[in-house]
Each structure stands twice: as structure tokens, then as C-alpha cells.
Amino acid sequence: MFDDVYNGRHVLVTGHTGFKGSWLILWLKALGAKVTGIALPPETDPHHFGLLKLDVESHFIDIRDEKLVREQIRNIDPDIVFHMAAQPLVRRSYRSPLETWATNVMGTANVLDACRAAERLAAIVVVTTDKCYENNEWVWGYRETDRLGGYDPYSASKAGSELVAASYRKSFFSSVDAPLLATARAGNVIGGGDWSEDRLIPDLVRSIRQGKPVEIRSPMATRPWQHILECLSGYLMLGQKLIERDAAFAEAWNFGPDREGNRQVRHVLDAIKQQWPSAEWCDIGQVQAHEAHLLQVDSDKARQRMHWKPVWTFEEGIAATVEWYQAWLERSNVVSRAQLDRYVAHARARELAWAGSFTS
């Protein structure tokens, strides 16, 4: 896969104990990468990172600690960095705005500044979010050239991290032999192993365990839903291009679903209930903080220039998510690797170039 560029390479993943990060290190290990992680200890119990039981060198530090970040990155001396560590929750950002700004903006600056001294480093992928755009509630998707912004502290801080990345790319990573730096913006990500607070599917799974309906604030809100493996395939493709020293890819990229993946919250819940009849929800009609009603991203740039596209349909992504949680709740099985294998097999069947040949 990915022309075997990750096999044997030293890869640093910040935020590797989180939902996205844990799935990424699973995939990187399958690709033969030598993975090291920097993150805070997992905040939830259970957590996907622990369930995977992967042999990964982990350093539990706060990316707001400039000295420790600099020291660890110098010692690790990676070939490529995937920077995912962040405060990722909108409602938490209202409760803890300074933590959010410090982590997402200064934390990103600390990581990038430390990367300046990494001797072997060839590539950096900074993962942000589709919420970094100034949301005008447009019916069309936002493109990478649209204005950055953000209403809540989380969204605005992720726009800030985009500006930090752009500044470092121009100021410090612009020479011919400098690491290539790109940013990646994905939509609403679903999949097994997420137990974060105030997220739709983790809240629904908790409600199923408790035998009561999940309370929904904005069932009519529309978001671009995609399975976790979809955006990760984009991140890995982007990393491949940077490792191969193609400077044309050192910029911002959207990785979102096809138009059929833009669904209202209630449609997501109804799709889950079709496969998991015990899933129940109720509309409480109480939006406690500002939340956008309509958000879509345009991923035509990645489709046309990188030849990236989603593998699974909306329904297939929902089915995989339900399958994961049911396997864990009912049998204590962790099916992450099996789902990764199936996803790659489907990508090969659909003749996506990145999939190559795959042996599980």
C-alpha cells in the first residue's frame, strides 16, 4: 500500500492515544512503520488505544510543554510527523477556552518549532478539521481557498492552527531541502472505538448500554459523515506525496465524503437503528451553545490531483461502526484490524491506486 513508503520508516504520531490517532497507528503498524507516539494518557475508559494492544513507543507529555516536546522530537528524529494532538470537542471548548487555544494553537506551534531541529524529517501532516472554515451556512461545500474562521473556541482555534502551519511552511520550511508541510481537513468522523464526550455515536452507544434514549440537541443539523478509515487513507496518501518530495502537495487538503454522505443527524440515527433496533433517541430541542446547522466540504481537489476518493458508502460506514460496537459490547471482541483488512480489500476491488497489494 502507498507504494510501500511507510515500511521501515520512523513515524511520529502526536495524539496517538485518541480516536483518530489510535486507528492511524494501527494502520501504520500494518504498513511496517516504526511508530512512536506523543500524547496525553487516554481520557476515557475503555479506550481504543488500549484495546488494540499495539507495540508502540509512547511518551505521555502535554504538547503545551515546549521544552518536553522539543526534547522528545529531537530524540525520536522521525522521517514523518502526523500531528493530531488537540482539544477536539466543541462544547468542551466553551467550558475550557484557554486550554483549547493553548493546545490547538500553541501546541501546534511547539510541535512545528521542534520539527525544525529534526535532522531526518522529510514530511509533516498537520490534521485540523472542516470546522476551520468561516461557516456561512452555504449549501455548497467549502474549498481549501475559502476563508478560515470559527464561531466557537474549538473551530476558531483550529483555524488558528492552520495559520500557524501556513506561517511555518513559508517562514521555516520553504527551502529545497526542508521538510514538506501540509494540512488535512476532514468531516465528521465515525467508527468503532470512540468514547469521547458530546459526540453523537459514543453518546448513543452509552445510552444503549443504559437502556434509555439518547438526548439529541439538533437532529436537523447537516454534517459530512465519513468512516474513520476514509480520512486516514487521505492522510496517508498525503504523507506519501510529501515523503516522495512532491512540493506541489505541501498545502491544505479537504478529505470529505461524497455528497450522499452529507446527512442530517436524524438520518444517521435512523440508519443506525435499522441495524441496531435497541438504539433510541429523543429531541430535547435545547441547543446550549452556538452550533452550525449546515456544514459541507468540497474534496474535489483531493479527487482530481491526488486521485483520492472514499471507499465505503455512507451505509457501509454506518454498518462498520455498528458492527464494531456490537462486537465489543456483546462479545468483547475488537474487530479494528479485521475492518481495516476489509476496507483495504474493498479499495483494491474498486481499483484505488493507493491500496496496492495487501497481505493481512
Rank of each mutant, 00 (worst) to 15 (best):
D3K: 13
V111Y: 03
V139C: 07
F49T: 03
H227I: 14
N254F: 11
D300R: 15
W312R: 12
D246Q: 07
D152Y: 10
G37L: 11
Y142A: 12
N7P: 00
W276E: 09
I284R: 10
S155G: 13
V111Q: 04
R337H: 14
E330P: 07
V35C: 14
V56R: 09
L294H: 11
N136W: 13
V125T: 10
R74H: 13
L204F: 04
V69L: 08
D55L: 11
N75W: 04
F255H: 01
A327I: 03
V105K: 12
H10I: 07
A221V: 05
F60G: 03
K301C: 05
M220D: 09
S278F: 02
R70P: 06
S233D: 06
A123Q: 10
G193R: 06
S96N: 10
I124K: 02
H267G: 08
H83M: 03
P310V: 03
A182E: 01
H290K: 01
I318N: 03
P224V: 06
E291Q: 13
R342E: 13
G192Q: 06
F255G: 00
A252V: 00
S233T: 13
L238T: 08
S332E: 12
Q226G: 14
E260S: 13
M84V: 14
L12W: 04
Y133V: 01
D65L: 04
R199C: 07
V214D: 05
A118L: 09
W276M: 07
L229Y: 11
E197H: 09
I284S: 04
V268S: 11
E71V: 08
I284N: 15
I284P: 01
R64T: 15
A221Q: 11
A279H: 03
T108W: 00
P202L: 11
V127F: 06
S357A: 14
P179T: 05
Q210G: 10
R305K: 10
A221M: 05
V311H: 05
P257R: 04
L294V: 11
I25F: 07
Y235R: 03
L204K: 05
S357Q: 09
F49A: 15
P78V: 06
R331T: 03
Q264P: 03
R245M: 09
I201T: 08
A165D: 00
T108P: 00
D258P: 02
D146K: 02
K20S: 08
P310N: 12
L238W: 00
G141P: 11
V189C: 08
T44I: 05
K212S: 08
E162R: 01
S196G: 13
S299Y: 11
H346I: 12
P179I: 10
